[in-house]
Computed example of a mutant assay.
Amino acid sequence: MFSDDDAAALYDVLNPWDPAVWPGDGFYEQAVMASDSVLDVGCGTGAMLHRARERGHLGRLAGLDPDLVTIAVRR
């Protein structure tokens, strides 16, 4: 679990969300974009949800993560 802001900032560097590179990300991206609302459990910094919003998702997007610092980064 990340314990400080610097470690949380590295989260997206170490765990990039990129459907073009990672087939699993593409699978989830399609499912998210086809859904009216999404709850991402273990969302980290919320990269998937941010990308969905940037790509035009107009529904409800919510993320949960046990790490309070990554949640702060997500906000």
Rank of each mutant, 00 (worst) to 15 (best):
D6S: 15
D18M: 14
L68T: 08
D67G: 04
G24I: 14
L10Q: 15
D6P: 11
R53H: 05
D25W: 10
E54C: 10
A20G: 12
M48S: 01
A34T: 03
E54P: 07
S37F: 02
Q30H: 02
Y28F: 11
D65I: 09
D4E: 13
P23S: 05
G24F: 13
D65V: 09
V38Y: 01
A47S: 07
W22I: 15
F27T: 09
G46R: 00
H57C: 03
R60F: 01
V73K: 09
D12P: 07
N15W: 10
M33C: 00
T70P: 01
V73R: 09
A31E: 06
A9C: 12
L10D: 14
E29F: 12
A7G: 04
R60M: 05
W17N: 05
G24R: 04
S37A: 03
V32A: 00
R75A: 15
L10M: 15
A62M: 11
P66W: 14
I71R: 10
P16I: 14
G63V: 03
A8L: 13
L64K: 06
M33H: 00
L49P: 00
D25S: 11
H50M: 11
L61Y: 04
D40E: 04
L10P: 10
P16T: 12
D40N: 05
G26T: 03
L10Y: 15
V38F: 06
Y28L: 10
A34M: 09
L68W: 03
D67L: 09
G59T: 08
R74V: 06
A8C: 12
P19Q: 02
D6T: 15
Q30P: 02
E29R: 13
D40S: 02
L39D: 02
D6K: 15
S3N: 14
T45R: 01
R75T: 13
P66V: 14
A72L: 11
E29T: 09
G42D: 00
L64T: 07
V69R: 04
R75D: 11
P16F: 13
C43L: 01
T70W: 05
A31G: 02
L39V: 05
L14F: 13
C43T: 03
G46P: 07
L39W: 00
A8M: 13
V32F: 09
A47T: 03
V32P: 02
D4L: 15
L58R: 04
G26S: 06
V38D: 02
R60E: 05
M48G: 03
R75K: 12
A62T: 07
P19M: 13
D12M: 12
A9E: 14
R74D: 00
D5F: 15
M48P: 05
D25P: 06
P19F: 12
V41S: 07
L68I: 05
V41D: 01
V73H: 08
V38L: 04
T70S: 06
A7I: 03
D6F: 15
A47R: 07
G63Q: 00
H57T: 00
H50C: 09
P66H: 12
M1I: 14
A72Q: 09
Y11N: 01
D5M: 15
G44A: 06
F27H: 03
F2D: 06
R53D: 08
D5L: 15
L14C: 12
Y28C: 06
L61E: 03
A72E: 12
I71C: 11
A7N: 00
Y11I: 08
R74Q: 01
R60Q: 06
H50E: 08
V13E: 14
S35E: 01
